[in-house]
Amino acid sequence: MNFLQTEPIRILLYLVGICAFVGANAAYLVLAERKGAGRIQRRPGPNEAGFGGLLQPLADGIKLLAKQVMVPPGTDALLFRAAPLLVMAPPLMCLAMIPFSDSITARSLNVGLLFVFSFGSINVMALMLGGWASRNKFAIISSARVVSQNVAYEIPMLLVVITLLMVTGTMDLNEIIQQQGGGFWKWNLFKVWVNPLMPVTFVIFFICMLAETNRAPFDMAEAESELVAGAFTEYGGMGFGVFFMAEYANIVVGCSLATVLFLGGWQSPIGVLSGGLWGAGWFLLKLYALIFTVIWIRWTFPRTQFYSLLNLSWKILIPISLFTLLLTGAMMKLPVVYNHFF
């Protein structure tokens, strides 16, 4: 046990652990998505490879790996190859910060929240470089959309997070979770005495998360009926596979962040059994419930129009999140002011 806790081994373990977690999630969330879509559409989904289609991700992976890596003529070959790497790195980095349980965190940092956001913002760059380097008109249109969309949604997201920071007073993710212990009514989602609009804040965060990860109904980057495959039109084989996996890895990061910030992370909803592996269990339960919602949403709604997406951000989400920010500030300072004067 002592040997396991030495720093190099710990780092190695977590490195392997995170890579495995991201890889397994990315692979099996694809299957879960297809199965979920099948369920909603009253069909079985992939069910031929392995028992109930469990080997489908493996089959897909082999197929993608066996494909020739094509760099189409006219592309910027270096950036074209670099983009898939760049798109996969941020979610891997971000997951290092996510506390899976009170004792399972790859790297605890007192500015963990900021870390997640700063590395999360690189993701856009990767999609954009990939699209630009493809030298494909559809891909470039898609890149332009990705940027405006991500820039537009980063603002309400950060506003929401600032609201939350005012409530928690810390950027350490583990500490944020610890503050939410003792039952689901203590989760930030239900802290209506701090800010009566807390559930709305969560909804805004969730919508922004969908938009930032380019998920339906905000999947402007891959609007297949308009832009063929968007930014990755020219990618084939594992290049495409990595983009595809990164999408799911980003969803995992986004949903775990939502879990940590609003749903009490590894805290048990009933106030007991929240340490150690129990905590990890609760965390994963909440995480996958959110991911399931993301899948459910994708297979229910049509895609939003691009300008109504921006309108939603600038005209609805930003004003509301600004209002909640002000409201939270006022609610927090009201007792102080009251005590001061009376």
Binding site: A37, A216, S225, W299, P302, R303
Partner: peptide, 13 residues
């Protein structure tokens, strides 16, 4: 039409 608009499920219904 819904496929064009990005909604996948209605066509199956």
């Amino acid at each position: 039409l819904l496929l064009d608009l990005g909604g996948f499920t209605p066509i199956l219904y």
